[in-house]
């Protein structure tokens, strides 16, 4: 039995412990980088606690009956047709439990999806899904979508930390689903329909060069670290004895100076000075969209406000083909998608 399997058993036992509500990265839940994501985890773990309690109660009764009421010599079963009081009790109590879950879920659902943040005061990004890529578009300096100064990227969503970002999603061909696991966010991209989702990312992704492990840090921690913004490459994974792939960052070949950020100031330093490397989060497609469904990977780069504004000004222009793609699939078909809601 490989080490990995033993660790899986340990993790599964830990995952079964009821009611550890609020524990970060409980069980198999991946780390979470948004406040709304934490609330979803909290709700998930509350339901998990209730479910485990009900599980122990019912399976326990089953096992008890199996052992205690076995067929023995001369024993006769009770001739009992039912008990109305019991029926009422085990209808009311589950109804109350479900009502409690319903109350928790409905308040969170209203907060997440029904009461939308207004698009005037928050950063709005448009996302056009297509067969096997994510296209993103920023309004650019004039703040209006569909104008030539829009900034476009492919499979790379840059967002500032500690700000609410609204993502307006649609699709060009088939139904895809924008899935940002660390933010616990998922929303289908339906052609011909504008769907919206918002997230308030408050953790930045960095890669610890010492332990070769990704970490999530708040903005304050980030400011206290020496983080290399560029100049490092994520090497192809090496398959370790457990059959898993170990990722690692290393300075790209022959690079002398890398931009290292410390408390907002970027200085050029030799690669070995940097303790961390900026590491993007991952987004995926969660709705079957064709043969390339498994390869629709994208990245979310969370930056400080200054870095983000700097990136927005210096983002490379992807050329006329992308502008034409956005025009064909978005602006010409659905100009109303570009207008912010009141």
């Amino acid at each position: 039995m490989s080490k990995r399997f033993l660790r899986f058993c340990a993790a599964s036992v830990f995952a079964l412990l009821p009611g550890l509500a609020g524990a970060e990265g409980f069980g198999f839940l991946p780390p979470v980088c948004t406040q709304s994501g934490r609330q979803i985890d909290h709700l998930y773990l509350t339901i998990f606690g209730i479910v485990v309690a009900l599980f122990v109660l019912t399976e326990g009764t089953l096992l008890f009956c199996v052992f205690f009421f076995r067929q023995r010599k001369g024993r006769k079963a009770w001739s009992m047709h039912g008990n109305n009081v019991a029926e009422v009790v085990w209808t009311i109590i589950p109804a109350l439990i479900l009502g409690y879950i319903l109350y928790l879920s409905s308040s969170l659902w209203t907060k997440l999806r029904i009461d939308e943040p207004s698009e005037k005061s928050n950063l709005v990004v448009e996302c056009l899904a297509e067969q096997f890529d994510w296209n993103f578009r920023y309004p650019g300096p004039d703040g209006v979508f569909g104008t030539p100064d829009d900034v476009m990227t492919v499979n790379e969503l840059h967002i500032p930390v500690d700000r609410t970002v609204i993502l307006k999603i649609s699709s060009k061909d088939v139904i895809h689903s924008f899935f940002f696991p660390y933010a616990r966010v998922k929303q289908d991209a339906v052609p011909g329909l504008l769907t919206k989702v918002w997230f308030d990312v408050d953790r930045m992704g960095v890669w610890n060069l010492a332990t070769q492990k990704p970490e999530l840090v708040t903005l304050d921690q980030y400011n206290g670290m020496k983080v290399a913004l560029d100049g490092f490459d994520l090497k192809d994974p090496v398959v370790n004895p457990d059959g898993l792939r170990d990722y690692s960052y290393a300075p790209s070949a022959g690079i002398k100076q890398v931009p290292v950020e410390l408390d907002g100031k970027i200085t050029q330093l030799p690669p070995d000075q940097a303790a961390y490397v900026a590491h993007p989060y991952e987004i995926a497609c969660a709705q079957l969209c064709g043969p390339g469904h498994f390869a629709m990977e994208g990245h979310v780069v969370v930056q400080t406000q200054a870095d983000f504004d700097n990136w927005l000004k210096t983002a490379p222009d992807l050329g006329p083909t992308f502008r034409q793609k956005w025009n064909e699939a978005w602006d010409s078909q659905h100009p109303e998608f570009n207008k912010p809601n009141p």
Binding site: Q39, I40, L43, Y44, I47, F48, I50, V51, L98, I101, L102, L104, S105, L108, W109, L112, R113, P181, R184, V185, K186
Partner: peptide, 11 residues
């Protein structure tokens, strides 16, 4: 029951 509660179903 996890999927019946919509916020958990989002994930």
């Amino acid at each position: 029951i996890f999927m019946a509660s919509t916020p958990a179903d989002i994930y």
